[in-house]
Design a protein around this nucleic acid. Structure first.
Lengths: 242, 242
DNA sequence: AAGCACTTGTGAACGCGCGAACAAACTCGG
DNA sequence: CCGAGTTTGTTCGCGCGTTCACAAGTGCTT
C-alpha cells in the first residue's frame, strides 16, 4: 500500500506514456476549437466528448503534464493550450524537409496543418530532374544530391519520406547520416534505423486493409447469424483437445 | 506446391485481437516481397525481421488464423499470402468512393496501393463545381449531390473523406445514411458515428506533433544531463519493493 | 459564514498484449 | 528405422494502459 503521498515523481518531464502523447494533439485541436469559439473554460467531460475519449482518461492524461485545471470549474482553455503546446514542443519552430515530390509530396507541401503549428517546410527535394526547379507552396524543389547540404544549412530536424518504396530506405539512411532524428515515413516499407532515431509511419494501404477486415467480419456476421454459439465465446481458446 | 498440411482450423473466425489485425497487412507485404523474390518458404524469424517485429509475436499472430506453417520448415509463402489475404478480406473487391478531390484527393486517387489489392475507386465526388467533370486516374469527378445515388448504384462499402475539416462531419453523416459502414478519414476532426460503423483516422498533423514531442525530449536530455537522476532508472521503477 | 453543487486529481482493480521459454512435430541424414 | 537438429504453436508471467470510484478542493448561494 503506497498510501504515502510520494509517488514515483511522475513529474511531467519524464515518464509521459506514449499513449498519452498520442492523444495530446487531439486534445490540443479540440481546445483550439473552443478557443476560437470564445469559450474560456471547459470541463473534462466536455473536452473528452469533443476529443472522443473517456473523461477519466483525459483527466489522467492531463495530470501527467501537471496540475493545471481548477476543481469545481474546469480547465482554462488558453492556459491549457499553452501548456500542451509547450509540452509537445510546438512553441519552437521545426524545420522539415520533404523528400519526394510526387502526388503525395504535392499534397503534403500544400497541406495547411504543416505550417500552421510550428512546422516549417524549408526544403523539397526529388530525384527526378524533371521535377527539380518547380516551385511548390513557395518552396523550390532541389535535387536529391543537395540533401545533406540542405539539412546542414537549414538545421533540418524532421524528414518526411514521400518517395516510392524502393527508394525509401536509402533516403532514410541519408537523412539519418545527415543528422535527422525524426522521420515521418509514407512509403510502404519498414524502415530500419539506429537507436535514437524516431520513425513514425503513415500507411494508407494498411488502414484500408484493416477496414476491409472489419467490414468482412460484419458482413459475415449478418450472413450467418445461426452460428451464434461462437459469439464472444469466453475461454474457448484454451483448446486442450489433442 | 502448397503443402496444405492443416485440414482443420476452420474456427478462429472470432477473437482476433485488434493489434494482430493491424499487423497482418505488414506481414502480407513482407510475404509478397518474398514471393516476388521467388522464395518458397520463410521461417518466423526471417519474416519477423522483415516485418520489424518480434518472432514470438509473429507466430502468435499467425496462430490466430490457424495452424498454417510446418514445424521444422517454416511457412509456405504462397499459402500464407492466400490465408492472410482471405482473412483480411482481400480476396473480394471493395468499392471505394473518395470525397474531396483537393491535393490530397488527387494523391489518393493516383496512389497505387489503392487499386492493387482489391480496393477499387469507383467514384470521386467534390463539392466544388470547378472540379466536377475532371477525369482523374480514369475516374470522372461527380458533384457531391450525387453521392447517395452513386453509393447505391455502385454498392460502395468504403468511403474516404479527404475534405476540409468543416465539411467532414456532414459528409460522414451522408455516407453513413447511404449505408457506408467503413470510413477512412483524413480530415482533422473527430467524427461521431453510430455503432456498427468503423472509422479509421489518418492525421498528418498528429504524427508531426508526436515527432516533435520526442525530438524536444531528446534535445532537452542532451542540453541538461545534470539531472541524471531520472535517467533510465534501471528496474527501480518496477516498484516491487513495498 | 456555512453548506451545497460541481469538478479535478488519483488510488486501485481489471484486462490485454508482449516477450521469453518450452514441448510437440516435422525433416533429414545415417 | 531411428536420432539429431530445426521450427512452430502455446503457456505463463509481467508490465502498461484503461476504467471505476472517491476524496479533496473550489465557487456559489443563502
Amino acid at each position: 500500500m503506497s498510501a504515502a503521498p510520494s509517488p514515483r515523481a511522475a513529474r511531467s518531464r519524464d515518464g509521459i506514456p506514449d499513449a498519452t502523447v498520442a492523444r495530446l494533439p487531439v486534445y490540443l485541436r479540440a481546445l483550439l476549437a473552443y478557443s476560437e469559439r470564445g469559450t474560456a473554460t471547459v470541463s473534462s467531460e466536455e473536452l473528452a466528448a469533443a476529443a472522443g475519449v473517456n473523461s477519466a482518461k483525459l483527466r489522467k492524461d492531463l495530470s501527467y503534464l501537471g496540475s493545471y485545471g481548477t476543481r469545481g470549474v474546469g480547465y482554462d482553455v488558453a492556459y491549457l493550450v499553452y501548456q500542451i503546446s509547450r509540452e509537445l514542443g510546438l512553441t519552437q519552430d521545426w524545420a522539415c524537409v520533404i523528400v519526394g515530390v510526387g502526388s503525395l509530396g504535392h499534397a503534403l507541401a500544400n497541406y495547411g496543418g504543416f505550417s500552421s503549428r510550428g512546422f516549417r517546410i524549408v526544403a523539397l527535394v526529388d530525384a527526378d530532374p524533371a521535377r527539380v526547379g518547380v516551385t511548390l507552396a513557395g518552396v523550390v524543389v532541389n535535387p536529391i544530391e543537395d540533401l545533406e547540404s540542405i539539412i546542414a544549412a537549414r538545421a533540418v530536424t524532421i524528414g518526411v519520406i514521400a518517395t516510392p518504396g524502393l527508394a525509401a530506405q536509402e533516403v532514410c539512411d541519408r537523412l539519418v547520416a545527415a543528422g535527422v532524428t525524426s522521420i515521418l515515413n509514407f512509403a510502404p516499407v519498414v524502415l530500419s534505423v539506429p537507436d535514437g532515431v524516431d520513425v513514425r509511419k503513415v500507411d494508407l494501404s494498411v488502414e484500408l486493409q484493416i477496414l476491409a477486415f472489419h467490414a468482412q467480419r460484419r458482413s459475415l456476421r449478418e450472413a450467418e447469424p445461426a452460428t451464434a454459439k461462437s459469439r464472444r465465446a469466453p475461454a474457448m481458446v484454451g483448446g486442450v483437445t489433442p
